[in-house]
């Protein structure tokens, strides 16, 4: 018993050094076929293997395919979401205090209504957020900050760039998305 266990322990140690087992087994399969001494086939599996080997590797039916049809596995519909859910939810979180004009989760687009300051009725801004990636990557979100000023009865662009504000929005979205991803693991 001790001898056997010592052998097994040594084997496990050696095992950790191995990295080409699959290619070695493929070579042995080619050489020995069903009688590969390392296959350890039961009597039943050996019968199946020999029958297939005699038939030149062919099978009468594709039982696996038929079985999958029977249990409905082949009718799987693959849905590929083009919008990363963490970034999307983070975008909603960032804009949750404002009324939303557009929230298109298929296109990954969020746009707020015009946001006005109570002490400055002649100035308004809105936020546009576009989620551009199905993956959680730092370049997967774009933010725009647009502002207008009222001149007479018309609202005109204030002509300013809000790069710092846009950066803050993007970083906030990424921060929240990272936390959401971390807590979902």
């Amino acid at each position: 018993m001790l001898k056997t266990f010592s052998l097994l322990l040594a084997f496990i140690f050696i095992y950790s050094c191995s990295n080409n087992h699959e290619s070695n087994m493929a070579k042995l399969d080619k050489t020995f076929g069903c009688k590969d001494p390392h296959k350890n086939l039961s009597k039943r599996k050996m019968r199946d293997c020999l029958a297939k080997q005699r038939a030149g590797g062919e099978s009468l039916f594709d039982l696996t395919d038929d079985f999958n049809k029977l249990i409905g596995q082949d009718s799987t519909v693959i849905y590929q979401n083009s919008v990363n859910p963490y970034l999307w939810n983070a975008g909603l979180e960032v804009t949750k205090t404002y009324p939303l004009k557009i929230a298109d989760n298929q296109g990954g687009f969020i746009e707020t209504e015009w946001i006005r300051e109570t002490n400055n009725e002649n100035h308004r801004c809105l936020i546009k957020i576009q989620i551009t990636s199905p993956e959680l990557i730092t370049t997967g979100v774009k933010s725009n900050f647009l502002c207008e000023v009222k001149q007479g009865n018309e609202w005109l662009s204030d002509g300013k760039e809000y790069a710092q504000e846009e950066k803050q929005i993007t970083l906030k979205i990424l921060d929240i998305a990272g936390n959401l991803a971390k807590t979902s693991l």
């Binding site: 056997t4 052998l7 050696i14 095992y15 080409n20 087992h21 070695n24 087994m25 042995l28 350890n40």
Partner: peptide
Amino acid sequence: SLSTSIGDMSLTAVY
């Protein structure tokens, strides 16, 4: 049963 490889050698140990 344990099966692995060392280089091009395939090894199997069984108890």
